[in-house]
Amino acid sequence: MDIIEGRSVVKGTLYLLLTVIGIPGNVTIIASFIHVAYYDHKFLAADTIVSNLATVNLLVVLVRCIPETTAAFGLKQLFDDNGCKIVIFIYRTTRSLSIWLTCLLSGFQCISLTPVTSTWSTVKRQVPKYLSPVLVFLWLLNMSLSTPAILFSISSANNRTGNKQAVNLEYCFVRFPSQTIKLANGALQTSRDFIPIVLMIFASAYILLVLYRHRQQVKKTRDSSKNQRSTMETQASKAVVTLVTLYVLFFGIDNILWIYTLTVTRTMQTSLISDLRVFFSSLYATVSPTVIIISNRKIHNKLKCRKIKQEAIYSETIS
């Protein structure tokens, strides 16, 4: 009993930490880009992708980390059946969108780094025009693939049958009618993540190749204007590669544990593995904002300007 209580305290503390870090980080990114769009009127395609990524990561923290925190500290019956359906639907949609948007960002960065030729120049000009339809398509696709959450999610207060096919989230249950449907749903989620992971790996490999060639070229040129522009592209590319690496690491572990969970019937072992799986899947939504804030020059400049203004106001108040 003490072991279970101790695990709950550790779990609650970890999710509380993710919440405290994840919400301010993602809100900072969103607020910075709103300021850029409203005052600077220079909202680029990459800014649109990153702002969408921060939005879905914020939703992941809100609908997963907060309920996990409260459930770990004893408040488990947070939602009724409809509330569980909504929360789990939003989580699964935003979780999958997080990887697809990271994949889209890596693909966009690949296009940005391509050699300037007539063909690629045309592609670079056309990409911003098709970005909005692509984003709408990704939202609709991932929402449609998350519909099993609406069908099978119930409140923890209503799970009295002891269904072995149920996935225990403590504050909610996902109760599958049969083991076959449970496995089919797991296969669907895993394949949905596998495709963008493969695409991101290829994109990252190309970006790293371009960065290596760029480093060799920098040694041979002294053109400061070209070097400054290439340095900005290099920083953006390194940020994208870092995000992809984080995703492959965290969600790779998540999917391995998810596949293992589908094949295990022992309650305690399944619960522990499920806790680890959800933690790693939520970790990206908390860590990635830090990478974006540090590497994105627009956000960094907005925060720097805000700090200078606050110091000026503070100085005027004292004087």
Score class of each variant (00 low, 15 high):
Phe280Ile: 00
Phe280Val: 01
Phe280Ser: 02
Phe280Gly: 01
Phe280Met: 09
Phe280His: 03
Ser281Asp: 03
Ser281Arg: 02
Ser282Asp: 10
Leu283His: 00
Leu283Arg: 03
Leu283Glu: 01
Leu283Pro: 03
Tyr284Cys: 10
Tyr284Arg: 10
Ala285Lys: 14
Ala285Thr: 08
Thr286Tyr: 10
Thr286Arg: 02
Val287Cys: 09
Val287Met: 00
Ser288Asp: 05
Pro289Asp: 03
Pro289His: 01
Val291Arg: 00
Val291His: 01
Val291Asp: 06
Ile292Arg: 01
Ile292Thr: 04
Ile293Ser: 00
Ile293Gln: 01
Ile293Asp: 04
Ile293Leu: 00
Ile293Trp: 02
Ile294Ser: 12
Ile294Tyr: 10
Ile294Ala: 11
Ile294Arg: 11
Asn296Thr: 12
Asn296Phe: 05
Asn296Ser: 04
Arg297Leu: 13
Arg297Lys: 15
Arg297Ile: 12
Arg297Gly: 06
Lys298Tyr: 07
Lys298Asp: 13
Lys298Met: 05
Ile299Pro: 02
Ile299Thr: 04
Ile299Asn: 00
His300Ile: 05
His300Tyr: 15
Asn301Pro: 06
Asn301Val: 14
Asn301His: 15
Asn301Ala: 10
Asn301Asp: 12
Lys302Thr: 13
Leu303Asp: 01
Lys304Phe: 07
Lys304Met: 13
Cys305Tyr: 11
Arg306Met: 14
Arg306Gly: 15
Lys307Arg: 12
Lys307Gln: 09
Lys307Val: 11
Ile308Gly: 07
Ile308Leu: 08
Ile308Asp: 05
Ile308Glu: 14
Ile308Pro: 05
Ile308Trp: 10
Lys309His: 12
Lys309Tyr: 14
Gln310Asn: 13
Glu311Asn: 08
Ala312His: 15
Ala312Ile: 15
Ala312Met: 11
Ala312Gln: 14
Ala312Thr: 14
Ala312Lys: 08
Ile313Cys: 13
Ile313Ser: 12
Ile313Lys: 11
